[in-house]
Nucleic acid binder design. Structure first.
Length: 417
RNA sequence: GUGGGUGUAGCUCAGUUGGUUAGAGCACUGGGUUGUGGCCCCAGAGGUCGUGGGUUCGAGUCCCAUCACUCACCCCA
């Protein structure tokens, strides 16, 4: 029995890897134009980092983490998200002492033990961007604008920015109190799932697909109506700056975040083409997280882009396979070695060169060159070799010309570079 | 963790009420007179029919179990 990959872990094969490279390169270019710097952090952390950072009672911590004890007996976890690790590094290396503001991004895999489905995997890749040290609503907007900028550069224009405010430690409890009262007073009218959610995850009831639940929740209290004065000001400034930058958005007062640390601004980029998992990117503000993880009182905001979801939305032609500049076809052992040497010379000069390695017929080598879509084939045969020449065939025009072998590298480089 | 759908060649799929050596297209390999690609033609290679039981004279086809994939719920990027 051959060994297969683990459920929920996917190979990214050569014919789609171009899309990934394109997405990553575009993210680096765009983010750096906003003065973000890349940071690389471990995939494995002490389990406590996530239980404290993400929240003990979240689904991620309760049932989705890849946690095990290592050989020294400490509990470690494959990161289920990046923000906690970035914050840990930020605190551990005292980055805030050198610079009051840090703009960081991370590209890499996350791990969550969930049942796979469309757009959801156990190992999945994210691009994360985080800003530490700025509380002004202007930075909330800059982060969203940068995300949209990136998505436009990559060719995704039709995504919708959804915005909400989750309040803060001061105003959220009174809202939750009111929501609970409302839910309990209507308890008997909800579906079984929602009755359970009243206890486990009250905000999720807003997302219930059942018509009768939707109807009841239409009357339910919204966080936006319970924001304290500071949170309200913050939210209003965010929307007014978005308008100033002519960035369209829709307010989704029912939007919920799965991680405990989010406060105030929360946002998602949503697509209609992704099935049930419709968020390509999501983020928000997390002003208390750095303190929670043992650092100084420094605010933070950031987002994560789901790479697999992003890639699945790209049009098929982006990042298509590279084709070699030249194919070298040879006939006979002497010319095979001659061609091998020439390939090396040209590669050292930066050309991409493929050749017929096995002693196959010219026809077979030509077929392969054609399949690879090489624009030129250099034919090195016994006759040519005796004359000290080679035949260069232009595959598109079907014309060919003789080249002097000693001059061949020069001519080829000029033609193809 | 729960529910639905699907498992036949590398890929996309046929396979008649159960009946001989399981097929096609694409892809792959070789060839179509001496050293020239795409199109066309010919040939070849490639399958424990997901796996394990059962029913039957006989199972790709029927039954049971199991596994995998997939979609949805839960939840999230």
């Amino acid at each position: 029995m051959a060994i297969t990959s683990i459920r929920g872990f996917k190979d990214i094969l050569p014919d789609e890897v171009g899309k990934w490279q394109f997405a990553e390169a575009t993210a680096r270019r765009v983010f750096e134009s906003y003065d973000f710097s890349e940071i690389r952090i471990p995939l494995l952390e002490k389990t406590e980092l996530f239980t404290r950072g993400i929240g003990e009672s979240t689904d991620i911590v309760e049932k989705e983490m890849y946690t095990f004890t290592d050989r020294s007996g400490i509990s470690v976890t494959l990161r289920p998200e990046a923000t906690a690790s970035i914050v840990r590094a930020y605190i551990e290396k005292s980055m805030y002492k050198q610079n009051p503001v840090a703009k960081l991004y991370v590209i890499g895999p996350m791990f969550r033990y969930e049942r796979p489905q469309k757009g959801r995997f156990r190992q999945f890749n994210q691009i994360n961007a985080e800003v530490f040290g700025l509380e002004d609503p202007l930075i909330d907007v800059e982060v969203m604008v940068m995300l949209i900028h990136f998505l436009q550069e990559i060719g995704l224009e039709k995504l919708e920015l959804q915005l909400n405010s989750l309040g803060c430690k001061a105003c959220r409890p009174s809202y939750q109190e009111r929501l609970k009262e409302f839910l309990l007073s209507n308890k008997g009218r909800f579906c079984a799932d929602c009755q359970r959610r009243i206890r486990t995850n009250p905000l999720r009831i807003f997302d219930c697909k059942i018509e009768s639940c939707k109807e009841i929740m239409g009357q339910g209290p919204l966080m936006l109506d319970f924001l304290g004065p500071e949170c309200r000001d913050h939210f209003e400034l965010v929307t007014s700056y978005l308008k100033a930058l002519e960035t369209p958005y829709v307010i989704n007062a029912k939007m919920v975040r799965g991680l405990d640390y989010y406060v105030r601004t929360a946002f998602e980029m949503v697509s209609g083409d992704l099935g049930a998992q419709n968020a390509v990117a999501g983020g928000g503000r997390y002003d208390g997280l750095i303190v929670d993880l043992g650092g100084p009182e420094i605010p933070g905001i950031g987002f994560a882009i789901g790479m697999e979801r992003l890639i699945s939305l790209l049009s098929p032609d982006v990042g298509s396979q590279k084709i070699p500049h030249l194919f070298i076809a040879t006939i006979g052992e002497k010319s095979r070695i001659q061609g091998f040497k020439l390939a090396k010379t040209l590669r050292l000069e930066g050309l991409s060169v493929e050749m017929g390695y096995e002693k196959k017929s010219l026809k077979s080598q030509m077929r392969r060159a054609d399949k690879l879509a090489c624009p030129y084939v250099l034919i090195l045969g016994e006759e040519e070799l005796q004359r000290g020449t080679a035949m260069l065939r232009d595959m598109r025009s079907k014309t060919q010309e003789q080249l002097d072998l000693t001059l061949a590298p020069e001519v080829l480089l000029r033609k193809m570079k």
